[in-house]
């Protein structure tokens, strides 16, 4: 790990009387996998939405690679190297998985530049290579609306990775995925991201996933960061276990 890649200082945002961000201070270090855990409504997705320009905080600062990104549009932030995936996969449902990936590849280099076919050899090859890394070549020609949840999640993340981000923010990458395939998917995902040297921040409810893949864990509670540290430290903290994980003693379990 090297320097700070994403830095949030004093982020504040309230929806009516509900404080979704109440003075968030967080530095994401380049190269790390940072997990965000916490109960529903704690403001985890809000943090991702603020960092990607979808929501504008009412106070505070956000910078990426030393450059202020607060107030920029999602488009501008993506172009600076911040990608995201979604809790509900945002695939183009009239397109195949390959076309979805190719659109993402094309968007990176010259979406508007030429009237060349979307599946021209160079874009097609890069899209297929990407799908291969994610283990999706078998469903490359399947329409996105015919996929199961696990495949939809991976395809959604693959589209974000196609943009070659330096930082990828993932909102619950394993939610809705069958327990039997969850660890395999995360394993593949972690390999792809580490190979591509992508820094990752992911919101996660499964503590087994967090314990296995996160370098650091941030605990969100009522719009604040209640605790921040290594998985060993955080997941064995009695307060975190009681308030977030929902158990008093014993090993780590998936939260509801």
């Amino acid at each position: 790990m090297s320097g700070v890649l994403l830095s949030a200082k004093g982020l504040r945002l309230a929806f009516g009387g509900v404080k979704a961000a109440d003075g968030i201070d967080l530095d994401v270090m380049e190269g790390e996998f940072l997990a965000i855990i916490g109960p529903n409504g704690a403001g985890k997705t809000t943090f991702i939405n603020m960092s990607t320009g979808y929501l504008k905080p009412q106070g505070g600062e956000i910078s990426f690679a030393g450059e202020r990104i607060l107030g920029l549009s999602p488009r501008a932030i993506v172009r600076k190297g911040v990608g995201r995936s979604f809790q509900l996969p945002q695939l183009f449902t009239e397109h195949t998985v390959l076309e979805n990936a190719a659109l993402a590849v094309a968007s990176r280099e010259g979406f508007f530049s030429a009237l060349t076919p979307l599946l021209r050899p160079r874009w097609r090859e890069e899209a297929m290579e990407l799908l291969e890394r994610f283990g999706l070549t078998g469903i490359a020609h399947t329409r996105a609306d015919a996929l199961n949840e696990g495949a939809r999640k991976l395809a959604d993340i693959a589209m974000a990775v196609a943009l070659k981000p330096r930082l990828l923010l993932m909102d619950e990458p394993t939610s809705g995925v069958a327990a039997s395939e969850k660890m395999a998917i995360v394993e593949r995902l972690a390999t792809v991201l580490r190979d591509a040297r992508v820094t990752a921040v992911f919101v996660e409810h499964d503590m087994e996933v967090v314990g296995r893949f996160a370098d650091r864990v941030a605990v969100w509670s009522q719009g604040r960061i209640a605790a921040l540290g290594t998985p060993d430290h955080i997941l064995n903290d009695p307060d975190v276990r009681r308030e977030v994980i929902g158990i008093e003693t014993g090993g780590s379990h998936a939260a509801a």
Partner: peptide, 28 residues
């Protein structure tokens, strides 16, 4: 026909199904 097969043309169906995703791909 050429236009509809290009990313610009395919982007039109993308607007119909997931416009927000286009924005998060850096495309207006």
């Amino acid at each position: 026909r050429i236009y509809l097969a290009s990313p610009m043309g395919q982007g039109l169906s993308a607007i119909k199904t997931r416009e927000a995703r286009l924005e998060f791909m850096g495309v207006s």
